[in-house]
């Protein structure tokens, strides 16, 4: 009897799984990750996200294994360039069984959707994620218009 109960339980678990897969179907569609997820330079550069938060833009990039000295960020008007090098962290005297993590240098440039104030750009690196906060230039900020 108990084996039947766990079978039913498992069936509902499978249905839940199916439902969450269906929920994700459309958001996953335009994302570049799948089963072969990984940091690869052959794809050009690290994956990034760009968010528009009204007064500022925020860029997040995946840079696992990079220290802050390995990264270079250049900004001019609405042109942003992020470059970096990932050095090999292979230890000496070890035999390599599997090497999937790429090591190379990359450059990725962006045309930002708005002019930013390059003086106030902030960058932080935490747990392998680079976060750039780019306050928009005065002219590009959203403004409330009062009706006369």
């Amino acid at each position: 009897m108990w084996t039947r109960v766990s079978d039913i339980d498992r069936m509902f678990g499978a249905m839940d799984l199916l439902r969450s897969r269906m929920d994700r179907l459309f958001t996953d569609f335009d994302r570049s990750y799948g089963d072969d997820y990984g940091w690869r330079v052959s794809e050009g550069a690290p994956r990034t996200n760009l968010y528009d938060r009204g007064n500022q833009l925020e860029i997040k990039a995946e840079v696992p294994g990079l220290a802050k000295d390995d990264l270079n960020i250049k900004i001019q008007g609405n042109y942003l360039e992020v470059s970096g090098t990932r050095k090999s962290d292979a230890p000496d005297g070890y035999k390599a069984h599997r090497v999937e993590r790429g090591t190379a240098s990359f450059t990725r440039s962006f045309t930002l959707p708005a002019e930013v104030d390059s003086e106030k750009v902030g960058a932080s690196l935490k747990n392998g994620i680079l976060t750039l906060t780019l306050p928009k230039a005065e002219a590009a900020k959203p403004r409330q218009i009062s009706i006369q």
Binding site: G34, G38, A90, P91, Y94, K95, E100
Partner: peptide
């Protein structure tokens, strides 16, 4: 997702 790994042995 499957993370990419390096495996070394001595």
């Amino acid at each position: 997702v499957t993370p990419v790994v390096d495996i070394y042995e001595n």
